[in-house]
């Protein structure tokens, strides 16, 4: 750990978050943390009632970041998210009222219910880290992460995100049901939603920003791992079951996420293991399968491809 002084508070935070507040959701919390550290966004795909919102809230609470929430519906307008200028009678001027997107962590609930116009406005903000309203460009605050959710089962009246939009999410994952005993405990003890306002921040936003800098600059990505990522990307492009393989942006995202994963493990270098571990979450939603195979699990396919590539060991 001595190599990474910035890593310690983050690791402690993650441990506390997983053990105290969000039991049984270690994987999602870690992925969310990776997205946060790598400066990406996360899309959580799962059934309602599994704690998607809770995770986002807890993450915001424990990091001391501001939290905004948008419940997407088909009549949601872009300005409902970005905010709009309001005429002030007292001063006789228009002043900008920032929307919920001007927060560090923004929960976009059921993102696939929003109209494509609204979706693209949000996604533009995600990509550019700024919002332009009525000709004025407003930068978004310091660490900025979108925590989007969508419900995979209820598809009526939704606008599924196109591949180009999905590509903007660093990580796409599910949550899954909590383990048996834990679920019993949750039933007995009730959810933690009420306790969330009481969560004490464990790090300051500055520390988080420092950690981000470390992830971006100080985690060493060796040539071997770069070659490994490149091989993986090439393999997805030549696989007969895949129509569109991974883009260069996907490869960059994979490297970033792997850096963050290595950082969370207290290492100052990326091992191929980090790539292997993070790849399904980072890449599977970016793969477009051939027609007729769309019912297949992209994650399983990707794992198969990864297993076929030898790990660079020496």
């Amino acid at each position: 750990m001595e190599r990474l002084p910035a890593g310690k508070p983050v690791a402690t935070l993650l441990a506390t978050l997983c053990s105290e507040h969000l039991q049984g959701k270690d994987e999602v919390v870690r992925l969310a943390m990776i997205a946060l550290l790598a400066g990406g966004h996360i899309l959580v795909e799962d059934l309602p009632g599994l704690g998607k919102t809770t995770i986002a809230l807890a993450l915001a609470g424990v990091t001391g970041l501001s939290f905004g929430r948008v419940q997407c519906t088909s009549d949601l307008l872009p300005s409902d998210i970005t905010g709009l200028s309001v005429f002030k009678r007292e001063t006789g001027t228009f002043s900008f009222m920032p929307g919920p997107i001007f927060n560090n962590i923004v929960l976009l609930d059921e993102i696939n219910r929003a109209m494509p116009r609204t979706q693209s406005a949000m996604l533009e903000a995600m990509e550019e880290h700024r919002v332009t309203v009525e000709g004025v460009t407003h930068p978004l605050p310091g660490p900025f992460m979108v925590f989007a959710t969508q419900n995979p089962s209820d598809q009526s009246g939704t606008f599924p995100l196109p591949e180009s939009q999905l590509d903007r999410f660093l990580i796409c994952t599910g949550i899954g049901y909590p383990p048996e005993e834990l679920e019993r405990a949750i039933i007995a003890g009730g959810g933690i939603r009420e306790r969330i306002p009481g969560i004490v921040p464990l790090i300051t936003p500055e520390q988080l920003l420092d950690a981000r800098t470390v992830v971006a600059q100080d985690i060493y990505l060796s040539d071997k791992v770069v070659a490994y990522i490149h091989r993986l990307v090439l393999a997805t492009r030549t696989d007969p079951q895949i129509q569109t393989g991974l883009s260069t942006r996907a490869a960059i995202s994979l490297a970033q996420a792997a850096r963050a994963a290595a950082f969370l493990k207290g290492r100052d270098f990326v091992a191929p293991d980090d790539v292997r571990e993070i790849a399904p979450a980072v890449c599977s939603h970016r793969l477009v399968l051939r027609t007729g195979l769309s019912g297949q699990d992209q994650g399983a396919l990707l794992r198969k491809i990864i297993a076929a590539i030898p790990v660079p060991l020496a």
Binding site: P272, D273, L313
Partner: peptide, 29 residues
């Protein structure tokens, strides 16, 4: 498996030490 995955899968501190020491050199090129 990769080195660190092995260390996690076996849970053997010796393997973990090996992975840390070896990886630190090799994955630093």
């Amino acid at each position: 498996l990769g080195l660190f995955e092995l260390a996690a899968a076996t849970g053997d501190p010796l393997v973990q030490q090996f992975a840390d020491l070896y990886g630190a050199a090799v994955y630093h090129d």
